[in-house]
Computed example of a mutant assay.
Amino acid sequence: MLADSVDSGRDLGAGVALYVDGRCVVDLWGGVADERTGRPWSSETACVVFSATKPVTATALLLAADRGRLALDDRVAEHWPEFAAHGKESTTVEDVLTHRAGLPAFDRPITPEEAADADAMATQLAGQSPEWEPGREHGYHALTFGWLVGELVRRCTGIPVQRFVAEEVGADLHLGVPADRIPALARISAGRPLKAADRQADEQTLARVVAAAQDPASPTNRSTANPPGSFNKPVVLEAGWPAAGLVCTARALADFYRRLVDGTLLARGSVREVVRERVRGPDRTLISETAFGLGFMRPSANMWLPEIARPHGFGHPGASGALGLGDLEAGLAFAYVPNLTRPALGDRRAFALVEAAYAALG
């Protein structure tokens, strides 16, 4: 199926991996890692996965909680006193992890150079006023999520989130890549617009989403386009933006979910609680429906999965079409990591691969 996707042009290059009951049963790759040079995708080609990053960063904070460094119902300001300004004093750790903190976007333009300074990003967010009362509504924190969670990790452990992820979550999960390793990464390319959307969304919702994406003042645009960043640029790749900058292979991302599913990263009982749905409904940022556990998405309009995967699937998609997925009941851990971006509405590449994975389980 991956070969067909590459041959048809739906993919440029990609990796896909699948674990079942702790055993790697699929580890495939193919296509082109760099469209400019024709460099082929290899078994070790890593690529940025955009927002599929979020569960990895969230797991760093969940590990800190599991070790007693904080509690999910703690007020953020108990660990980060400066955060209490401008009506944020009651914001909880759970509010941050469920996109209810009211800080979906920065209130001024942020440069990629500023975004590389975690202290500056923490100071900026601590000084902002929330766009809604924290805990009352949810709206996707596309980029701010990472700096909010990352600062809590640093405050509670004394370790920057990039280092904590490398040391405690997975050595093959890279938040920040040294300059000399960047030439070996897959290079992101933009795919041609699709003619029609395949997802189950009505025309009115589709029109609203498209209009929001094209309006610079919309919550959608403000949350996803500030700071602006080409994920091929060293200033972004080296910084390792903790909401969207994870670089890894499909094998490494699937193994992250494998360790969640089999209880070696967090106890299985803890994972069940982490992925339990806490919010669902129209998203103030993304317009259409989203659903969240603690840092993990649940199946919704913004993580569209085959029907068989919807009862127990958890994970997160990325803007490139990337997807990380776990299922405790099926014993399944899956990842798809491409380098050709497609419009989010209508991109069925990951959907088709997940459908094939479940079908193979019999």
Rank of each mutant, 00 (worst) to 15 (best):
L2P: 06
L2K: 14
A3S: 15
D7M: 10
A14L: 08
Y19V: 14
V20T: 11
C24G: 00
E35F: 00
R36M: 12
T37Y: 00
V48R: 02
V49K: 01
V56I: 12
A58K: 06
A58Q: 04
T59H: 00
L61N: 04
A64W: 00
G68R: 10
A71G: 15
D73A: 12
V76P: 01
W80Q: 11
A84K: 03
A84V: 12
G102Q: 05
F106K: 01
T111L: 08
A116D: 10
A118R: 15
A118P: 02
G127V: 12
E133P: 06
G135T: 14
H138L: 13
G150S: 09
R155I: 10
T157A: 11
P160C: 12
P160H: 11
F164T: 04
F164M: 10
V165T: 06
G170V: 08
A171H: 12
L173T: 05
V177K: 08
P178H: 05
D180F: 09
R181S: 14
R181H: 14
P183Q: 09
A186P: 01
R187P: 11
R192P: 08
P193M: 08
L194A: 07
K195H: 13
T205C: 04
A207W: 01
V209D: 02
D215S: 03
P216M: 10
A217T: 13
S223V: 06
P228T: 09
G229Y: 07
S230H: 07
F231T: 02
N232W: 07
E238D: 03
G240W: 05
V247T: 09
Y257W: 06
D262Q: 07
L266C: 11
R268W: 12
V271W: 09
D283C: 15
A291L: 06
F292V: 13
G293I: 05
G293W: 03
S300Y: 02
M303F: 10
L305A: 04
P306N: 07
H312F: 09
H312I: 00
G315A: 09
A319P: 00
S320K: 01
L323Y: 03
L328P: 04
A330D: 10
L332F: 05
A333Y: 01
F334K: 10
P338G: 03
L340T: 02
A344P: 00
F351K: 14
L353V: 11
V354G: 01
A357P: 07
